[in-house]
Nucleic acid binder design. Structure first.
Lengths: 205, 205
DNA sequence: AAAAAAATCATGGAAAAAGGGGAGACGGCA
DNA sequence: TGCCGTCTCCCCTTTTTCCATGATTTTTTT
């Protein structure tokens, strides 16, 4: 029986590229695609593919969250993460959230097919470069933020002071200060400027 | 005569996607692709396509530089910029450097074909969303920074204090403070956090 | 139900940035 | 030559952030 593959990516060209790469491959069938998390979930209510190729950057939700959600609801569906070069710091999170594999967008056809075949059987696949960067990444680890920390971080990046943030979130300024301190620590940033830069470059904002 | 199209993108899947989108279109012929600036320039020494679809992110050189270089050496070759969502601040630069058009990576087939057709005739094409963001960008004008301001901005974003920056640049802390104040004013930012965010999102860093 | 993680609040002090003003030196350019 | 922009430097005050420490309550996970 052929492996059913579903594609989630917000770039039409990437979807088309993957379809084209998988078109004439026997044992692999593209059952559809979605360009955001919502329509992906909608599709899954109707039918479940064997494997989902999922981009990390989606317009409505991060691929990491979507990955977790899908795995919880449909444990039989295996997920392969997709990303470009400079986003490899997300690989760990994606794998932590139940992804079975990770392929870079400049992967070859063979690599992609191999990944799908292995993952469909319940195995794990990391493209070489992904595995490489995973090692690097574990050295300079990327922090996991709580709900509140993300909120505070966003407001900080918008130029708000602790007092303004406190007012907005209906909490004390000292609490905001605590969150701020925790953010600085998690990012190993010694001040707000670096905090914002790191957060932006790591896709937290 | 068919329009010859050359693709420059570091992601294999995108190249494949574009090829697939243009495969059965008459009057358009894909003559090849390159995954970096060097091999693109090497190809152009052999033959010149009518239109180049060029990604902004290349491993060895920015698409903006490559665009300028190609246009200087081969004025008959028209260039269409390619990019994802959050990089639209580069559109202006790309167009300033001689690009004839700009298409987002989630463009439809029709949009892509239209863009190629128009640009091949010497016209200009901006995808709707690109044009939209261009207007936003011109409205919330992007400041022109002086050499020194750029230096200071970069160091601020790296988390350095005025004193540290002063030491690094061999100037007084009060001078650094002046530059900092000017930066805040130019960006209409009321503190460092917003300054860094704006600078990053507008491609100054 | 117990343990762990997250969110809340506080005090007090040191360091840095923000906001205001003023001013001299230099180079390019009209 | 005189103007303009840039870079340089300084003082003062207020605001905000950063740091250290400690504690209670709520939520989540195990």
């Amino acid at each position: 029986m052929a492996t059913n593959v579903f594609i989630v990516d917000d770039h039409y060209m990437v979807i088309e590229g993957i379809r084209s790469l998988l078109q004439n491959v026997k044992d692999i069938e593209c059952t559809g695609h979605a360009m955001n998390a919502v329509s992906c979930l909608a599709f899954l209510q109707q039918q479940q593919p064997d494997v989902i190729l999922m981009d990390i950057n989606l317009p409505d939700k991060s691929g990491i969250e979507l990955c977790k959600e899908v795995r919880e609801k449909y444990p039989a569906v295996f997920i392969i993460g997709l990303s470009t070069f400079n986003q490899q710091s997300f690989i760990q999170k994606m794998m932590d959230n139940g992804a079975s594999g990770y392929v870079l967008k400049n992967a070859t056809q063979e690599e992609l097919i191999a990944a799908i075949a292995i993952v469909a059987k319940g195995g794990h696949f990391l493209s070489e470069e992904a595995a490489l960067s995973l090692r690097k990444y574990n050295a300079g680890d990327m922090p996991l933020l709580t709900r509140r920390e993300k909120e505070v971080l966003t407001l900080i990046a918008e130029g708000m002071t602790n007092a303004e943030i406190a007012q907005k979130l209906f909490i004390s300024t000292t609490t905001v200060d605590t969150h701020r301190k925790n953010l600085l620590e998690k990012f190993h940033a010694k001040n707000t400027a670096l905090l914002v830069k790191l957060a932006l470059s790591q896709g937290h904002l």
